[in-house]
Design a protein around this nucleic acid. Sequence first.
DNA 1: TTAGCATGGATAGTGTAACTATCTGATATA
DNA 2: TATATCAGATAGTTACACTATCCATGCTAA
Lengths: 214, 214
Amino acid sequence: MATAEWKMAELGARSGVPVATIKFYQRENLLPSGERTGPNQALYGEAHLGRIRLIRALIEVGGLSIVAARQVLEAIDSERPLQETFEIAQHSVSEAIDPETLTTDALTHVDALMSGWHVSADNPGRLAAARVYDTFTGVGQVDAAGWFRRYAAAALLAAEADIDELDARAERAAKAEIVVVGTVLGDTLFSGLRRAAQEHVSALRYATPPAAEV
Amino acid sequence: MATAEWKMAELGARSGVPVATIKFYQRENLLPSGERTGPNQALYGEAHLGRIRLIRALIEVGGLSIVAARQVLEAIDSERPLQETFEIAQHSVSEAIDPETLTTDALTHVDALMSGWHVSADNPGRLAAARVYDTFTGVGQVDAAGWFRRYAAAALLAAEADIDELDARAERAAKAEIVVVGTVLGDTLFSGLRRAAQEHVSALRYATPPAAEV
DNA sequence: TTAGCATGGATAGTGTAACTATCTGATATA
DNA sequence: TATATCAGATAGTTACACTATCCATGCTAA
C-alpha cells in the first residue's frame, strides 16, 4: 500500500498520540515496528497511522485493556477462520465468568430467553446475562422476566445488523476488522442510543405541560 | 425495617465482602455507619447487607467507579424528582464527552437517526453515539448508516422496556432503585445477550455441515 | 566537518484507582 | 482478669496505562 515515509515524531504529530505512548504500544506488541533504515532509524506510513487509530478506538472508545486489545489485534492479523476471530473478539470484550458462581436458576431463565437460539454453553454472553439475572434478583428486584425478554428481542435485532454488515464485506481482512470493531464499538453505540431513547420515551410518557419546567 | 443485629465481622461473612473493604466503602460514603452502641461498637442489619449487594452490583457487574457509584447511591437516597435521578444515573454511567471533539458530520448523522425523538442536545448518549460514529469512520469503515439505524431501532425497544418496568413500580424508592439498576445493568445485560445472539445468527447464516469441524 | 539535535530501544518512574493491612485504644467475652 | 474482637485512622499494596530519562548512534545544518 502506502510506503513508509515519516519518522516517529511525525507519526506522533499526525496521530495526536505522544511518541512515548507509541513506543509503549510497540513494546506491548500492539503496533509493529517501522521500516528499518539503520540501527537506530525507522520509517512509518499510513498503515501505522491506521493501526494507531484502531488501537485508540479499542482502548478509548471500546474500553478494552491493553491485553484485550493485543488479543483482538492478533486475531485480525492472523489468518484464522473468521469464526475464530469472532470468538476471540467476544472473549476479549467479556470478562471471564466462572459458571460455578452462577445459580442454575439464572442459567435456566436465560436459556429460556434464548430457546430456539443456537448458542453454546460457554458463550461468554450467555454467562454474562445469567450473572445480570443473579445480580438483579440479589438486589431485590423481582418479576423482570418481561424486561429480559424484550432485551433479548432487541439483542437479536442488533446481532442481525452485525452479521449483515459482516456479509457486506468481501475480503477476509475487511471482515475480520469489522467483526472486531463492530463487537467492541457496538456495545458503546447501543448504550449511547439507549440513553437517548430513554429520554425520548420518558418525555413522551410523562409529558410536561408546554411551558416545560426544569 | 429489620433491626440491626450483627457486628461487622458477620456483615462481612454474610455479604462475602472483606471487612477491610466494607470499612473502605464506609469511608467513601457508599455505605452508612452501623447503629452505634458505644464509642467503638456498632451493629448492622439487613439494610446494610442490601446496600452492600447494591454497591457490588454497580461496581462489579455494572463497571462503575467508586465516584460514580457514590453519585447514583446519593441520587437514590435523595428525595429528588425521579427525572433528576434518571439524569444522574445516565451521567454516571457515561463518560463525559466534550462536544468540541466531535465532528458536526457525526452529530448530523446521529440526529438523523433520532429524528422524531425528543432528546436534548447534551444528552450523554447522543454524544457517545456521535463519538462512535467518528471513531468508526476514522478507522476506515464506511457505509454503516444501516447498521446505526438498526441499532437505533433496537435501542428504542430496550428503552421502552426500561420505562415500562419503571411504570410497574409504585413507590419512589422502588422507582429510583430500578432506574439506577436498570440503567447500569441494562448495558451489561444487552451486551451479553447480543453476544449470544451473534453466535446464533452466525450459526444460522453460515451453517456448517452436520459433522461440524472446528 | 563538526556541533548539536533527533532517533530507537531499554529502563525506570508516575499517577490513579481500588482495595488491603497494620495500628490503637476501647469493649465484649470466657 | 486474660484474651479476643471492635471501630476507626493511617499507611501500604497491586494493577494498569502511560510518561520520562538514558544511552549510543545517526542525521543535519553551519
